[in-house]
Design a protein around this nucleic acid. Structure first.
Lengths: 339, 339
DNA sequence: CTGAAAGCGCTTACAG
DNA sequence: CTGAAAGCGCTTACAG
């Protein structure tokens, strides 16, 4: 391991005390401009990088944030959506000079210890919780302890970056009703202990109600966001689907799974719509009508909110990101030239 | 922020010195069994979690590893493959009591500073580099500095977890030749500055050569692993494709993009095979014949190797993971019952 | 505007 | 087997 360049080395080369060197590098204005320049030059020359543990320990503020995926989450995000969010988080964290610690828990007890290592171990200045179950009490708990926490997804009582899944689901369902005159619309939901799944289901219900349509309980199926569960839903729904009916899937992966099964079994494919705008959805047959949110921005904003909390700000208003319907052909619309 | 429980608190409650408390918690055998029990009990009672910065600083060994995605990487992994690898990494890191720092660089200069913050800043005890370009000199550089580094993917001169992409590509190409009697096989590669793309292309060439078939340069297209580039390849290849020809795509996402375009344009779909076994590939139409590697294990093994390097081991033999052909229908095989 | 000193919370020689 | 002391590399009162 190469030997370490310390602040003392920088101070010596610049001909000042460690105090001045430290303050100069922090761009403290009590230090003469001239000194700051000299110190910066010395630091660059030596390739000085502050030892993070020393500064964390002394300042009592780690320069990291943690992203925790509760064990219940597993596959609540579709892969690309999760990666987009992570992209936004790492990019924004970079801007704030924060390192990102990724913590995924395999089990409940792992989770307990993961959380406490982060919060009690002083490892991160705050945490972003991605897709907690609504039954998960950790985020609220650590929030109450006064620890900075931001939840991605709608979460009452905690700083959060929500996504307007209710609006998105309602809009795409209404598209089916208003543009295509559909009277019966089935819904394949995600796991219903997650807020996003609940919101999408509620949006579907609101659209049906708003149009005076009835909700047939046989036309509702709880999936888990994985392709296979869409395939299972396809089989379960098939006997109850009549000509002209439609199905709203809570994500594109389940819609794709269903498409595969219906096609394999030679079943007529109903009008369908998905959710998330998975990169492949443009190329499925038919291309999927879907709903998208800007998850990169969601990740970025989560970091911004967390940074504000870390700075000591209180009462951060929860943000809700808009969603947008992407019309392609699976709903029954004609092909677009732009696609 | 809740007030911190320190080692001194634990020592006091257990009625021993900080030295003994520290050693007891490290399970040092120079401490009496009886003392160890008392200290552990006190620690549990107080909910003690060691302050990571203090121990990192004192022991001069951070209890974290970093996963860095060079800026050139962006989308070199298909999303699910990347997530599987990350799953393996975080799970194994947990077992070793290591935190995982995720570092993604947006640009070359970001990358330089990201690397040096990690290595020179003492942030991580070692790094796992995921999918570096073959032109990327960082991994070799920090390796030379004596810093523990493991590369995922074949990489000469550095500890690495390779994947037998050459073998996988050759096997799936030979399937096309031997089972289906294909004489002309096109290839849509990934970006050719990445080892995995090079290996797959070489496997394709080896299979053709081995069967005495010629390589038509018009039947080769360099993509970037994204769906769109598969769509572009489909258009570029179409004029040169004759009845009975086949196409080997370097990943399933590009294959899916191509499928979408051919279908949209009413072009007869050739025999095709993909790579990576993307979860959706089972449900496309036709379901994709593809190649898979156990990326969760790859991620786990990367951590194991890195941990060994951190422990001071030298000369770790590079590991190469096998790949497996998954036969579905896109190659021309009949449907399987198991699918 | 600058610097000497204290101390963050650990771990690790070292002495007994 | 146990404990007093030193020190990792910073930052931050504090005094000048």
């Amino acid at each position: 391991m190469p030997e370490r360049v310390t602040l003392a080395d920088v101070a010596r080369l610049a001909g000042v005390s460690k105090t001045s060197a430290s303050m100069a590098l922090a761009d403290n204005h009590r230090v003469a401009e001239n000194t700051r320049v000299r110190v910066r030059k010395a630091a660059t020359e030596l390739g000085y990088v502050p030892h993070f543990a020393a500064s964390s320990l002394r300042s009592q503020r780690p320069d990291s944030i943690a992203v925790v995926m509760p064990h219940a989450t597993q596959h609540v995000f579709s892969h690309p959506v999760f990666i987009e969010m992570l992209e936004g988080i790492t990019a924004a964290a970079n801007d704030f000079d924060l390192a990102v610690i990724l913590s995924t828990a395999r089990s409940e007890s792992d989770e307990r210890s993961a959380y406490s290592r982060i919060t009690r171990g002083g490892r991160a200045a705050g945490v972003i919780v991605a897709a907690a179950s609504v039954r998960d009490s950790y985020p609220a708990e650590i929030h109450r302890m006064g620890y900075p926490v931001v939840v991605v997804g709608r979460a009452p009582g905690v700083a959060s970056i929500g996504i307007d899944d209710l609006g998105g689901a309602e809009a795409v369902t209404r598209h089916l009703i208003e543009v295509h005159g559909t009277k019966r619309i089935a819904h394949v939901s995600g796991p219903l202990d997650h807020q996003s799944s609940i919101d999408k289901r509620d949006g579907w219900i609101a659209a049906l109600r708003g149009a005076g349509l009835t909700i047939d309980p046989r036309l509702s199926f709880e999936g888990d966001y994985e392709e296979v569960s869409g395939a299972r839903a396809a089989a379960a729904l098939a006997p109850h689907l009549e000509d002209g009916d439609a199905v709203f899937f809570a994500n594109d992966q389940m819609a794709t799974g269903a498409l595969g099964v219906w096609r394999r079994d030679g079943i007529a494919i109903p009008r369908i719509v998905g959710y998330d705008d998975h990169p492949m959805s443009r190329y499925t047959s038919p291309p999927l009508t879907t709903v998208r949110a800007d998850m990169v921005r969601v990740g970025e904003m989560a970091v911004h909110q967390l940074a504000a909390l870390i700075e000591g700000e209180r009462d951060i208003a929860p943000l809700v990101f808009p969603t947008e319907v992407i019309v392609r052909e699976s709903c029954g619309c004609p092909p677009h030239v732009t696609d």
